[in-house]
Design a protein around this nucleic acid. Sequence first.
RNA 1: GCCCUGGUAGCUCAGUGGAUAGAGCAAUCGCCUCCUAAGCGAUAGGUCGCAGGUUCGAUUCCUGCUCAGGGCACCA
Length: 581
Amino acid sequence: MKDIIKNLVGDALEKVAGSHHFVLPESYAIQIEQTRDASHGDYACNIAMVLSKQVGMKPRDLANLIKDATTDNEYILKIELAGPGFINFFIDATAYHSIIPEIFEQGHDFGRSTSEEHQKVLLEFVSANPTGPLHIGHGRGAAYGATVANLLRFAGFDVTCEYYINDAGRQMDILAASIWLRYQQVFNNALSFPDNAYQGDYIKLLVNNIVESHGDQYTYDLDAINEAMADDDAERRLDSIIRICKEALGKDCYQLFFKAGLDSILQGIREDLEEFGVCFENWFSEQSLVDDHTVDACLEKLEEEKWILEKEGAKWFASSRLGDEKDRVLIRENGQATYFASDIAYHKNKFDRGFDKVINIWGADHHGYIARVKAAITALNYDAGKLEILLVQFATLYRGKEKLQMSTRSGEFITLNELQQEVGKDAARFFYILRKSEQHLDFDLELAKSESNDNPVYYIQYAHARICSVFRQLSEKGFIYDRKDGLNSLSNLTEPHEMKLLATLTRFRDVINSAALNYEPHQLAYYLRDLANDFHGYYNASQFIVDDTVIRNARMTLIDACKQVLLNGLSLLGVSAPEKM
RNA sequence: GCCCUGGUAGCUCAGUGGAUAGAGCAAUCGCCUCCUAAGCGAUAGGUCGCAGGUUCGAUUCCUGCUCAGGGCACCA
């Protein structure tokens, strides 16, 4: 309908331009909007105000000419001028009815688009360090990423979801050393434990497994450890312990501790995500980039292209020449590559896989990192414009009014899994995406738990369950739902509640498109609330199960279509659509 | 100091270059002999952070200021 009006206005405009001898600007966009206020008709166009100056006419005069020049259309009942120069279109109800058969024809695919077909997208998200279970902070990225992926797929993109495993680097060494220290503690009560090592309970569970299968064969000299612990500098102390741990165990046995931590934590992460309805096609290992020399290759390439500087004993990437605020270290003074070096390799790998779009979802704390990554991509002669970085603001956790700190190292956190047990997947997924991603999210545990019924997800699900219930009642009362008859009787749907519901159903495709292309799942959440609201209003205003067969079938057909759209929308959000509540 | 985000009803947040700025919660008042009251309807609540600018029109765009959160490592 929007397009029909757009074309009519476009034609009328050209006609007016011809007869009044003025020249239209080379490019102008005709905007047609669904109105909010019924007194403004069904669709409104503001083109007269947009063009009035360039054309040299008063907006209302131009609007009037356009109105008169618009050819008749079977669906347009009347055109009115209003306000400063709006052209309002009043549409015949039957134009709205046409959405119902379309909903049934496409079913689960209603709202799906093929306009972005063959666009290959890589979507990387979560990618939390495998040093502990996922907590509530990670949940936001997981829910957001998974929903964006669903939306993009529905919009026609070919999406691959990927989790980048930071299985190389110092954090992992700290983890391995933490496990080793806990292991030592089992046999030496006197040993203290540094507060900047990983101290969550999950470490103790891991240690128990090692003790069970390997006994005390890896115990080590207590004095040597205590000596290292005496260092005043907390981070240096950790490095000493890592060094001692590596020396004491040797390469193979160190791997035993390392892998024990990595494998079981990663397994836990996979399970938690799966339970949360978040699936990845790829789990990409950082270490693999070291092993297959991609990191080395990148460094060589950058060296060749003269992007590498040596100063203060380290190798730097001259990112400041590409818009970054300063240069960045790639190889440290001690010869070790930085995380940034392997991240460059990772992005090279992503680009080499031939995606049309590479999207990273990062926590907002990484924003300073964007310039250097884009600089590296440009330096490697790739198109940095294909990389889009979506920042998700932090979720701050509250228990009532008390703000809780979340730290993986200190072991003080609520895990994603615990959240799911307490709040439920549906409510948690919905709560996470209800806020715009760039908004801070205050996640109040007390509120989420004690007043979970206030979560609008129940309101939407209730609409779906209510429709299902009406259908159950229908057959219990001995009626048979005849959709074909309903589709032929749609002209009976003319009440305000019915028209509103039809208008909202018509909006669905636009909403999906906009939510997908802008990476804004909350648009869909708010839309579904509106749709549920329209339905609940209709439910209270009209009886569906009435004796008049024609009216009954028409109304049942309308709420049947509404049910389908609720289901499609909820599925995209990863939320279930229960038939009973 | 520099760079991101945000400042909209008592609270939590949507929204928009346009016609009377919306929703939930909280408050007040109504609605179940009738398809699920996890619902519906109504009332009340606003100088859209402050000040300039662009515009026919700014809460929306631009600039400055201010407040709040985050980021500015040879950590990942």
